[in-house]
């Protein structure tokens, strides 16, 4: 019985950690969903930390993950491409009390563009 529980837990763990997309992996689900940190290049770790802290002030990271993985912005249903990442970056920069400065916005936009490129790889 104990073995069965361990097996079940292992299966659930794998299922939770299973990437939705082959190229951009995510961990967790629902409100706790996030990009798999292991796929973030070393020079973008800083941007990833900014994203993890700043973006979730207003919305969950799930929204960003789904947008990158599907190429569609979950709220608007419109394509989420590099033009969109820049637009969202500008939107966050201009948003009152978004608490993001220019440099942080630039870093996060670059990170999202990198992830979009990864997602587009065949």
């Amino acid at each position: 019985m104990r073995s069965l529980k361990v097996l079940l837990a292992a299966v659930l763990l794998v299922a939770v950690a299973m990437p939705v997309h082959a190229k951009v992996r995510s961990v967790g689900s629902g409100d706790r969903m996030n990009f798999d940190p292991s796929q973030i290049p070393a020079d973008m770790k800083g941007a990833f930390e900014v994203m993890k802290v700043k973006c979730i002030q207003c919305h969950t990271q799930e929204r960003t993950v789904i947008a990158i993985q599907t190429g569609i912005a979950p709220v608007t249903g419109q394509p989420f491409d590099k033009q969109a990442t820049k637009a969202y970056g500008v939107k966050m920069l201009r948003k009152p009390k978004s608490n993001m400065n220019r440099e942080e916005v630039k870093q996060v936009v670059n990170l999202m563009n990198y992830l979009l490129d990864e997602a587009a790889k065949p």
Partner: peptide, 18 residues
């Protein structure tokens, strides 16, 4: 309705399409 943004910048399009 959410407005759709124009795709006027070729450099911002995804690198690959299926």
């Amino acid at each position: 309705v959410w407005t759709k943004q124009k795709k006027d910048d070729a450099s911002t399009k995804p690198a690959a399409k299926n």
